[in-house]
Every structure is written in structure tokens, then in C-alpha cells.
Amino acid sequence: MSKDSKVYNIQLQIDSQMKHIRLLGGALRGIGAELELTNDQIGQLELILVEAVTNVIEHAYEYKTGNQIQVKVECDPDNTIKMIISDRGKSMPDSLQGKLKADRLSLPEPELLPESGWGMGLIQMLSDSFHYERNNEQNYWHIMKCLA
């Protein structure tokens, strides 16, 4: 597929199960390959998406299955890719929202041998903008990455 100025919109939906996150990852890789993104770009986008959706399953749905997670991907191959991840679960915990508002990236100290806590920091590092909103009993994660 040759690049042009067309903006592509793709909508994906999974059940709130960890194993279904792989389906999202596979779909995103396919989209990235069709749009001729680099392997680095595709890998980073997949990591962003997987970390975000894992967070939704963990915090919004507390690992309960049978709930919907929607991902809208809007891609202008010459400029940006935007992902909006939405769910109808619980609000993002204040502790995580605090990390988003902090000036510095929130990553655990390696020397403490952490086994978790990297997700939000990774999304912040790998994206060019990232914000969260709660609206109408739904959570929305807005993530944008520049491709140029």
C-alpha cells in the first residue's frame, strides 16, 4: 500500500481478558504493516496499547471477564497515529491519575527489584501525548504518537 494523505479509522473491541489483548496486538501489527510503519514504530505502538489495555483489565474491570474494551485507531500515515481506549469500568485510581499529572515520569527504581508499576511510565515515554478522562460513566485514554 502506498502512503497517501488519507486518514484511516479502525475500531476494535475485545472482551476484558488478558489473552484477548494478544488479538489487539496482532491487529495493530497488521495495521502498522499495511501503513508501512517501521518495525520500531509498530513495536512501540503495540507496547503502548498492551500496557494501556492491561491497565484497564486490572483497574477498571478488576480482572472480571465479560466486559467490553474498545479501541479506536485513527492513523494519518504521514503524521500521527491516535488511539482512544474506552471502557465502562471503574474510574482510574487516584494513585495512577497522580502519576499522569506528575511532572516527572513515574517509573519504579530498578534497584528495588520491582515486579510491576512500569505501565503508565512506558506509555508516557513512548507516546507524544497521553491523557485520561472520565465521562458518562466511561473511561477514555487518549494516546497520540507522531510518526514523522
Binding site: 513495536g43 498492551v50 515486579e115
Partner: peptide, 17 residues
């Protein structure tokens, strides 16, 4: 391995411990 997320990394830390 072509993809690993932070859950996988966390398990590697637990293995190290």
C-alpha cells in the same frame, strides 16, 4: 521473542529473586 510487556518483565524479576 519479538514482544514482551511489563508483565513479562515483572516475571523475569521474580525469577531473578
Amino acid at each position: 521473542v519479538t514482544f514482551m510487556d511489563s508483565s513479562g518483565l515483572g516475571v523475569l524479576v521474580s525469577i531473578l529473586k
